[in-house]
Amino acid sequence: MLKVSLYRYNPEVDQEPYMQDVELDTGGKDLMVLDVLELLKAKDPSLTYRRSCREGVCGSDGMNINGKNGLACITPISEALKNGKGGNTLVLRPLPGLPVIRDLIIDMSLFYKQYEKIKPYLINNTPAPAIERLQSPEERAKLDGLYECILCACCSTACPSFWWNPDRFIGPSGLLQAYRFLADSRDTATEQRLSELDDPFSVFRCHGIQNCVNVCPKGLNPTRAIGHIRNMLLNRAS
């Protein structure tokens, strides 16, 4: 039997959140955490969490698993228990730092707002050619490690700077995307993008703690991207 400790909160019923302890027969299988949740939900349909692709590409089921942010669908129980917190109990909490709507579901509005702030779309006002805009494999390679972000918010909600200033610090995820467009040879708005990042909060609240790198389920490195942005700002100003 697997012991599971679940963060529960239904705003219509509960005065405050509580941890619910349940047990589940996993048949000895090393299930993914999402499978555990699905089995529990079959028994108790009121258990609430987001999920979609169940293969780690849609970014729906980011949650705090035994103390570490990650995707439930690609975290096996065995790996979850290795995160340290909770001993032999699987402990599932919502991602920290943003308001909880219900159970494991957080209100991600601020996270998305920061994403929108960096103008996450290609800007190029020169007339488009009849075919694609050419880009060399080397230029394209600069986007590797950036465009793969799935907006799961595991990184930003692991970042203390984002906890304190989610309304003003773009956060690791948004900054990774900011750099994704700064690094794209097809984008011509570099100057505009940089000028919009040069305030004391958007980029510079990053103190290099690297929690983002530590939790990213896609193995991306927002801290490095933030360093690149800082260098671009420095280059532009000097």
């Binding site: 919009e196 305030d199 958007s202 800082r230």
Partner: peptide, 21 residues
């Protein structure tokens, strides 16, 4: 653009200059 945070109390009023200082 309206999104930029104006910080009248920050040292150099720019994140970069604060960071550099």
């Amino acid at each position: 653009m309206g999104m930029v945070v104006k910080s009248v109390t920050s040292f150099g009023r720019s994140g970069l200059s604060d960071w550099l200082v």
